[in-house]
Nucleic acid binder design. Structure first.
Length: 616
DNA sequence: CTGGTGAGC
DNA sequence: GGCTCACCAG
């Protein structure tokens, strides 16, 4: 039974020797590879920086981003004046009289486009975070372009994890070409240990968190450190590129796993990065506040901290695994591991959104159906434009359900949902029809004069890319058949009789003009392949270097007027959209060891579908 | 399908 | 505090 006591071990994880297999075998590229190199990156005071750049302000102007009377972001120049997020705007202005206060964009009474206005009124306006989502996508596009080989996980609107392992190994082999082949006389072939690692020049890697008693003492350099250094150099280049192209500064952490990368990205801010080597992990974690660790900032973390009277990670290290699991469940092994710097969770390629919420705290309270309908219209209008926008980047994107939530006073909010049938004619009105139905159900129990809502929210959930076949026939006819009929007619046999031809459902390409954002997003992809494009010209057409598809002008009449170029661009956009959605090189697909709360062991489906299948 | 938790700006 | 997002339990 003794072998069950420790954390799980695998061949790849054996001891502390790095072998040629770790470096060269694709099969060894799992979460257990000791050379694994993960970065976490977040934009410094994101919303405030977005606004400062949008306004074209100099970098040293103190600015806060406001939402009604509260502050949601404080840029670093403003922080010098002691301004915090929880200050009121008046307090902030007292601390810094020349502070630039910028309110977030808003929709004015249900207008179809959000904008920046001189005056904003919470009674008539609805906050829009769309401008920030767009910036977020631009940044992700740069990550994707500069880190084409590793997975990228969008963690929030301004944070991402990057698996730098493949790129770091490439660079390592570039610097040490002799590692690329196993020596003839290596005793164990691929499983032979690498030669001793030479000293490292960390000068381009940013901050390196010091290990215990390291000052001047002899320190053993490892190949794991080399991988981190290569990753850190890559990350520094990525950050530099974000700065050059978008003028945003960001902070990053580079470590062997996600949890540590996330923690050390916050070590030096702003505009800085920190490397956390294995040998420095315990020194780094020991004095850290236990509840600063991701997923331990809430009730669970509090419960554990209280149980063991622990403040720092160091305080928790004496708690035996068995005891922890006895009190907090089998799953709490991830806590045991993470305070030791161990985290085997994967960087899951995900940049597509799974839900869209438009929420409004209404002032004054909504007391009549008429007031409710007004706000429903505003919320539906926002969802309409957001889904439209998302579909330009992710064609075929469609929500499974529409959800209405509402809250009365301090009661917990209630929600109701309804399937959201596909239509080719998405409109605010279409969304509203379903939203109203939910509203009627939800407000049914409220007696006249009893209604007093202070929050109303509308959300799309189960956002997925529909393939043509999945776009139900009943959905296709939605605009022609009464809505009541749609809800009843779910089965194919109920579809209108005598519709022999499969309807031509919306194609992947809308053929619409590109927005500046799309053009921007497409740029990286097309320029990257442009040299290849030149190399294989096809008379009267173009062969995609990525998939081999032959693109010819669909309309001969328009052929001379740039139609081919447009279709080529569209095709490349499509590839880009696919790559953004995580269709890159497949994941490593190794099993998980419960390193995260409730992590499930899942078998990965094959191919591109894998990224769109609902979790089962 | 509904509610709750956790995180972040 | 307002507005998001993801994930999970029952």
């Amino acid at each position: 039974m003794a072998f069950l006591a420790g954390p799980p071990r695998r061949l790849e994880d054996s001891g502390n020797t790095v072998t040629y297999r770790h470096l060269l075998s694709p099969q060894a590229m799992t979460v257990f590879n000791p050379l694994r190199t993960i970065a976490h990156c977040d934009i410094d005071a994101a919303y405030a920086q977005f606004e400062s750049v949008r306004l074209g302000l100099p970098d040293d102007i103190p600015l806060i981003c406001a939402q009604w009377q509260s502050i949601i972001a404080v840029n670093y120049p403003a922080r010098k004046y002691g301004i915090k997020r929880f200050n009121t705007i008046d307090e902030a202005k007292k601390l810094c009289p020349h502070l630039y206060v910028q309110h977030v964009a808003t929709y004015r009474n249900g207008e179809s486009e959000a904008g920046y206005w001189g005056e904003v009124d919470p009674q008539t306006h609805k906050v829009s975070l769309d401008p920030y989502r767009r910036e977020s996508l631009k940044i992700l596009a740069i990550f994707k372009e500069l880190v084409p080989k590793g997975e990228i996980e969008k963690a929030s609107i301004d944070e991402a994890f990057l698996d730098l392992t493949p790129m770091a190994i490439d660079r390592l082999l570039l610097v040490h070409p002799y590692l690329a082949s196993v020596p003839e006389d290596a005793p164990d072939g691929l499983d032979s240990a690498l030669p001793p690692a030479p000293p490292i020049d960390w000068s381009k890697a940013g901050n390196v968190f010091p290990a215990d008693g390291e000052e001047g003492a002899r320190e053993v350099t490892t190949w794991e450190d080399w991988a981190l250094c290569m990753g850190a150099e890559i990350m520094a280049e990525v950050r530099e590129e974000v700065w050059k192209r978008l003028h945003y500064t960001c902070s990053a952490g580079i470590a062997h796993n996600k949890a540590m990368a996330k923690l050390c990205s916050a070590w030096k801010k702003p505009n800085n990065q920190t490397v956390l080597r294995m040998s420095a992990t315990s020194a780094f974690l020991r004095d850290m506040d236990f509840t600063d660790i991701r997923f331990l900032g809430g009730k669970l973390g509090q419960a554990i901290a209280t149980e063991y009277n622990a403040q720092t990670v160091g305080d928790m290290l004496t708690v035996p695994l068995e005891e922890l699991q006895a009190k907090f469940g089998e799953e709490s092994i991830w806590v045991y591991n993470i305070i030791r710097g161990i985290d085997h969770t994967e960087v899951t390629a995900r940049v597509a959104t799974k839900s869209m919420l438009a929420s409004k705290n209404v002032r004054p309270n909504v007391k009549t159906p008429e007031q409710g309908h007004h706000w429903l219209g505003v919320l539906a209008g926002e969802l309409n434009v957001r889904l439209r926008d998302a579909r330009e980047i992710s064609p075929g994107l469609w929500p499974k359900t529409l959800v209405l939530s509402h809250r009365t006073g301090i009661e917990p909010s209630r929600s109701r949902q309804i399937p959201f049938p596909f239509t080719r004619n998405l409109s605010t009105e279409y969304i509203l029809k379903f939203a109203r139905r939910l509203w009627d159900e939800a407000t049914q129990p409220m007696n006249k004069g009893n209604m007093k809502l202070n929050n109303i929210a509308l959300a799309f959930t189960g956002l997925e890319k529909l393939e043509e076949g999945q776009q139900g026939i009943e959905g296709f006819f939605a605009s022609k058949v009464s809505l009541d009929a749609i809800n009843i007619k779910r089965s194919r046999s109920n579809s209108p009789a005598g519709s022999p031809k499969k309807p031509r459902l919306p194609t992947l390409h809308t053929g619409k003009r590109k927005t500046p954002l799309e053009a921007f997003l497409a740029k990286g992809e097309s320029s990257a392949s442009s040299s290849t494009v030149q190399a294989n010209p096809v008379p009267n057409g173009w062969t995609c270097p990525k998939c081999g598809a032959l693109i010819t002008p669909s309309d001969p009449v328009e052929a001379r007027s740039g139609s081919l170029a447009a279709e080529k661009q569209e095709h490349e956009d499509w590839h880009f959209a696919m790559s953004l959605q995580g269709g890159g090189t497949g994941g490593s697909g190794s099993g998980e060891q419960g390193a995260r709360p409730k992590a499930k062991v899942k078998k990965k489906p094959q191919g591109i579908k894998a990224f769109f299948t609902p979790k089962g």
